[in-house]
Design a protein around this nucleic acid. Structure first.
Lengths: 160, 160
DNA sequence: CAAAATAAGATTGTGTACAATAATAAATTG
DNA sequence: CAATTTATTATTGTACACAATCTTATTTTG
């Protein structure tokens, strides 16, 4: 059943500017502050692995699929080379990854896990277990939030 | 009715590490990337006001209540002086705020809107209207996300 | 094939975030 | 009341984010 002319869901446009302003700001701020709080929760756990939160995301992407170009990593993580290049250089200095220019296309830089970077995966498995306890989320909440935020992100990116 | 022994909501602890890892990571990444996408949506609109997104949040806090100390702003926005001090200096250079040491307690710095900063409010009212269109959220989504994210943030901060 | 256009990363500059530390002021306490 | 402790903000250093620009390599096109 498609949505009918809906009495229970007033359109955004029908709200008073004040109410709209209030809700919109609240949601955006909730998003912003929840995201910062989340990275603070991760910080001490990731510090044991020598990683920051964005570095952890890159490692997750590489553990899921090794050998990706900078561009591919950027597409998956929604980050550009200005963010990734220095971050990847730090991961390289830690000997978690290797950066090698492609022979087929000298413009591309291929990022590969080192042995040490691959081994780190075993240690990293415990991270989300400890995080889950700290977030105090039910499975429903995790799933629901994940879906809503992913949908939101899609719409935002489509309108950039 | 309090939650009973619930067949429909398996506990986090009952999940396999793989599934937990997957969900947890997805949610955290969704949060992180949605937050970054949101600030990208705001950026061009706020640029017209000469503001960054965190600066906009500070202005919103001051429009809601003028004359706040650095500490009070930090408590509302979940930011510390290391972030706020340079940000406030930039807002001061823009002549949107004033920073004055309290006479009663020389440790405190009181932040006040300038005439220009107060006037900016009129221009800023249109921002959330334009944002709402771009987010493509229903009222339900805004409310639901706001509540969920605020609850999440509370739990995260309680566990820092 | 040479010139122009496009693509992929790197670099530069600005502005957060935040831990750690410092500097100063106020409050507490022996 | 002097010494210690605590509170408030500022400073320093590291690491993102990202716009704008640059460099180099590939692709397209006349």
């Amino acid at each position: 059943m498609q949505r009918m002319d809906n009495i229970n869901t007033p359109a955004i446009a029908d709200l008073s500017p004040e109410r709209l302003l209030c809700l919109d700001i609240q949601m955006c701020f909730a998003l912003y502050s929840a995201s910062l709080s989340m990275s603070k929760i991760y910080k001490p756990l990731l510090a044991e692995l020598g990683l920051t939160y964005p570095q952890y995301l890159v490692m997750l992407a590489l553990w899921a699929q090794n050998e990706q170009t900078v561009g591919e990593l950027g597409e998956r993580l929604f980050l550009d080379s200005g963010t990734l290049t220095p971050l990847l250089k730090r991961l390289e200095k830690l000997d978690y990854i290797q950066r090698v220019r492609s022979k087929q296309d000298e413009r591309r830089v291929i990022v590969t896990l080192t042995e040490r970077g691959d081994a780190l995966r075993q240690q990293a498995v415990q991270v989300p277990v400890q995080i889950a306890a700290k977030t105090g989320c039910t499975l429903q909440e995790l799933q629901s939030l994940n879906e809503q935020l992913t949908r939101l992100r899609s719409r935002l990116i489509a309108n950039l």
